[in-house]
Amino acid sequence: MPVDTVQEKVVYERPRSLADVPNHYCPGCGHGIIHKLLAQCIDELGIQESTILVAPVGCSVLAYNYLRVDGCEAAHGRAPAVATGLKRVHPDTTVISYQGDGDLLAIGTAETIHAANRGEKITVIFVNNAIYGMTGGQMAPTSLQAQKTKTSPYGRNPADVGFPIRACELLNTLQAPVFIERCAVSSVKTILKAKRAIMKGLRNQVEGKGYSFIEILSMCPTGWGMEPREAVSWMEAEMVPVFPLGNLRDR
């Protein structure tokens, strides 16, 4: 018989809903954090076996490989329409539409607005990093004024291509959505807030409430041409003033 035993106490473990595989995201990218938050929320709500994740075209196209739930690829911009089809067939599942800025606000603007306007009982996770990452750093609908990208090499000029679009404010003009919040993943504090928003957005769906929209400002060091740490600072200094954090609606 041993003289004394070692008490093991688990203080942290990988969420069950997060696959134990290396991901393809760049160093300093926000997608990994957001995937983990989603997985934690899915675990805590106990909905791993009733969740369907719709992955977009963009960097997160392979999201279904990282979250251990039923997964569905969608054509570029069409995730809310695909999510609509899934949810209308299986109203008891939790359907998540995970989208980037080009997907949600450029090629898929119509799908975004109309799914929200119908009050489709889905949860949209909108990852806004102000650039097209997967295709190599082109201008996004949310690229900032004067932001240099591959397709705005002299800086985004509003006189030519308009100003960045604010998704939360746009959707806040509609009657149907029940929850709209903008978060960020730039610090422990903002990450914890983002988790609470995701949790609320998913719980709304579990409770059959309606359409929830969570925008998450996220870093793209590769697309921005910055070191990861620099990218965090740039996001806080440049993006947050244009895309103010906070809850716009919680019914």
Binding site: I52, V54, C72, A74, A75, R78, A81, V82, A83, T84, G85, L86, K87, R88, V89, H90, A110, E111, I113, H114
Partner: peptide
């Protein structure tokens, strides 16, 4: 379920979602 979509593009992608769901 009958749903008038916002576009032909949305309609076929709703079909895609419903087909993926086994309907």
């Amino acid at each position: 379920t009958f749903l008038q979509a916002e576009s032909e593009v949305a309609a076929i992608n709703m079909v895609y979602g419903a087909a993926a769901a086994g309907a």
